[in-house]
């Protein structure tokens, strides 16, 4: 990571926008979940990038280390990753149910079948 300045944040923005595009534009429910995951982990990368200190090491106390990266974002993101998987599981269970009720996981077809009833 020899690029200085705000380069990392711009990568995060690019990834986040790709995830957002998938969520808005794609009509397949499983793909939307993947897009949501991409959006989520771009936020994680953003937090972790903020916690980095120049010349620091991982926040495990050892002899000879002078600077440590900020441990606080790491804690927050550890929690967020696990909660993210829980929500992913719940969303996928909903998708499986929708597939059983409508026989499809495409949003358009679901709307069509809704209109017919």
């Amino acid at each position: 990571m020899e690029f200085p300045g705000l380069y990392d944040y711009w990568i995060v923005v690019a990834l986040m926008m790709a995830g957002l595009y998938i969520v808005i534009a794609r009509r397949n429910l499983v793909k939307q979940m993947v897009g949501l995951g991409i959006f989520q982990s771009s936020v994680f990368i953003f937090y972790i990038a903020m916690g980095k200190v120049e010349g620091g090491t991982a926040p495990i106390l050892t002899e000879g280390a002078t600077a440590y990266s900020n441990p606080l974002p790491h804690v927050l993101i550890l929690t967020a990753i696990v909660v993210g998987v829980a929500t992913l599981a719940l969303g996928l269970a909903l998708i499986v149910r929708i597939n059983e009720a409508y026989g499809t996981i495409e949003e358009d077809e679901i709307h069509e079948k809704e209109a017919q009833q």
Binding site: M1, I48, H74, L78
Partner: peptide, 12 residues
């Protein structure tokens, strides 16, 4: 995450 010194997060 490993590059950003967050080894625990990288594991998870």
């Amino acid at each position: 995450f490993v590059l950003f010194d967050a080894v625990d997060v990288a594991f998870t």
